[in-house]
C-alpha cells in the first residue's frame, strides 16, 4: 500500500528505561514520517532513570516527560490525552524496544482511514510470523485468548499486543478512561462492551533490541491474577 496523505495521525511511543533501543526506534519512525504528510511522533518518557530522556531530547519530536513512573497504562494514556487535545484523528501505539515493525504501520491504519474499524491490532499469531516468544509467554497469551473468547465470543489471537491503532472515537474514550497496569487485554473487553469494531492484522515482531520486558517471572503471577480479575470486572463494571 502506498499512501502519501493520511488523516492527522500520531504515533505514541511509551518508553521506560529504553536507552539501548530508543534511538533506533525513533530513527526508523522519523524516516517513515518524512515520507508521509501529517504523521507525527510523540514519545512518552515514563520517568526513566537511565539516559532515555537525554536521547529523546536530541530528536525533534513531541516529547512528554512524566516526572515519575506511572507504568505503561498511565504513560500511554498521556499520549492519548495529547492526541485528544491536539485533534488527532488516528493514534498508533508503538513499543520503544524495537519489537514492532514500522512497515506494518500503514496496514494497521488502513482500515481506520477507510472507517471500517475503530481499533486495529497488530497480531503475531493471526498468520504464522517469524515471532519466537518463550513457551510461557505463548501460554500466557493463549490463556487470555481463551478468557476473552469466553466473555466476548470473539477471537483476539494476540490480546497482549501493544501494537494498536485507534480512531478519534476511541482516542476520546481512552483520554478519559484507560486501565492502569497491564492494560492491553482489559482494553479489548472495555471496547467490546462499547460495541467498538476491533480487527486484527498480521504484524511481524522482532526480538527486543534491549531493555527488559515489563513482565518478569516474579511479576507474572500477579500479572495473571490482576488481568484476569480486571477482565472479569470489566464485564460487570458500572459506567
Amino acid at each position: 500500500m502506498n499512501i502519501k496523505t493520511i488523516p492527522k495521525t500520531i504515533i505514541i511511543v511509551p518508553a521506560y528505561n529504553e536507552e539501548a533501543s530508543i534511538a533506533t526506534t525513533l530513527t526508523s519512525l522519523i524516516e517513515l514520517s518524512n515520507q508521509i504528510d501529517r504523521l507525527e511522533i510523540c514519545v512518552v518518557n515514563d520517568g526513566s532513570t537511565d539516559r532515555t530522556k537525554e536521547i529523546i531530547d536530541t530528536f525533534d519530536i513531541v516529547s512528554l516527560h512524566l516526572p515519575q513512573n506511572l507504568g505503561i497504562g498511565g504513560a500511554v494514556q498521556t499520549g492519548y490525552k495529547y492526541a485528544y487535545n491536539h485533534g488527532f484523528e488516528i493514534a498508533v501505539q508503538f513499543d520503544a524496544d524495537g519489537q514492532h515493525n514500522v512497515h506494518d504501520l500503514l496496514e494497521l491504519i488502513e482500515p481506520i482511514i477507510k472507517e471500517e474499524e475503530d481499533m486495529v491490532i497488530g497480531s503475531r499469531f493471526l498468520k504464522k510470523t517469524d515471532y519466537k516468544g518463550s513457551k510461557t509467554r505463548r501460554i500466557g497469551i493463549y490463556y487470555f485468548y481463551i478468557v476473552l473468547k469466553l466473555l466476548t465470543k470473539k477471537r483476539f489471537t494476540d490480546p497482549t499486543s501493544g501494537y494498536r491503532a485507534i480512531n478519534r472515537k476511541v482516542i476520546t474514550l481512552f483520554a478519559h478512561h484507560y486501565p492502569k497496569d497491564y492494560p492491553e487485554p482489559e482494553v479489548l473487553m472495555h471496547l467490546n462492551r462499547k460495541n467498538m469494531r476491533i480487527k486484527e492484522v498480521t504484524a511481524n515482531m522482532h526480538a527486543r533490541l534491549g531493555g527488559e520486558s515489563s513482565i518478569t517471572p516474579m511479576k507474572s503471577i500477579y500479572y495473571f491474577g490482576k488481568v484476569t480479575l480486571s477482565i472479569l470486572m470489566q464485564s460487570i463494571v458500572k459506567e
Binding site: T78, K81, K180
Partner: peptide
C-alpha cells in the same frame, strides 16, 4: 497523582 503527573508532562511540552 496519575492525573496530575500526566497534566504536568502535557503542560511542560
Amino acid at each position: 497523582v496519575i492525573h496530575l503527573t500526566q497534566e504536568f508532562a502535557l503542560l511542560k511540552e
